[in-house]
């Protein structure tokens, strides 16, 4: 299949290896990945902060980028549950706020082809065993938007359990938010800190070497807390585990979500 990669703005700049891993994984599975350099952001931060009017040009830009090539690709993939959720549920809200029914219609067409990574793999590409190798213990944080808005359910765990060499450990209070919440993490920093402190403690209590999730933003939050407190576990994105093979295994770098050059 031909899959268009929307890296998300955060991944492109702050966690580029997550997007590289997505490319590596999909190509290893025999698919063609395309990347349109006009892409910027899905507008989630603006939308969730209530800046609909400022989100609108971003949504327009998103639609302008992906709509023209819609016929030529089988899917658009985003390695982020919350961004995929924004495309699917919130672009329409922004368009309605701006009184732009045409944008709403165009955005809906793009949204219909947009998938979060685990959805793409399990639902469209019909794979759970992607031939990955990751000889480490991990614990899975479901991330709120993947779990409650997109409802990806057990897909990520099914993918993880099929990975050779992996040990998936239980995360206490896994369903509780890590405290990221976009601008919430800065606006209500004390509360957010209390939340991520507990999440990081639960990751440590799980005894796993890595905490894995499908959203780089949550992982940046949890990983940033783990680093700050000097705790051992690292955060790693689902894509990075699924891209890892015996021939080319994932080795974390010191940068949060980064990968050591091979």
């Amino acid at each position: 299949m031909r899959i268009s990669l929307m890296t998300t703005c955060l991944v492109d700049v702050m966690a580029p290896d997550v997007a590289r891993a997505t490319v590596t994984l999909l190509e290893r599975l025999g698919h063609e990945v395309v990347f349109d350099e006009r892409q910027t952001c899905c507008g989630q931060m603006h939308t969730n902060s209530g800046y609909y009017t400022e989100a609108a040009p971003i949504v327009r830009s998103f639609v302008d980028t992906f709509e023209p090539a819609l016929e030529e690709v089988d899917a658009i993939v985003m390695p982020s549950g919350s961004c995929a959720g924004c495309v699917r549920d919130q672009h329409a809200v922004v368009a309605r706020h701006e009184g732009d029914p045409l944008l709403e219609e165009r955005a809906a067409a793009v949204a219909a082809k947009t998938y979060e990574l685990s959805e793409l793999l399990v639902d469209l590409l019909k794979v759970t065993d992607v031939g990955a190798y990751f000889p480490h213990s991990v614990t899975y944080h479901p991330t709120c938007h993947s779990m409650r808005f997109l409802k990806v359910g057990p897909r990520p765990l099914r993918l993880l359990r099929a990975v050779e060499g992996i040990e998936v450990k239980n995360l206490p209070e896994s369903d509780t938010c890590c405290g990221f919440g976009g601008t919430f993490s800065v606006k209500n920093e004390a509360t957010s800190d209390a939340m991520v402190t507990d999440k990081a403690a639960n990751v440590v209590a799980s005894g796993a070497e890595f905490v894995v999730a499908g959203d780089a933003s949550c992982l940046m939050n949890i990983g940033g807390k783990l680093r700050r407190t000097g705790a051992a576990p690292r955060s790693v994105h689902l894509a990075q585990i699924l891209a890892s093979t015996k021939e080319d295994p994932f080795v974390p770098s010191d940068t949060i979500l980064g990968r050591a050059s091979s």
Binding site: V13, F35, E37, K187, E189, V196, G224, I256
Partner: peptide, 24 residues
Amino acid sequence: PLMPGWTDHRDLPKPGPSFRTWWD
């Protein structure tokens, strides 16, 4: 502005070469 709200409590990854640089 704003940044200390994050960095007071947690580290932030340092931006390196972007994905699109690699892709090109």
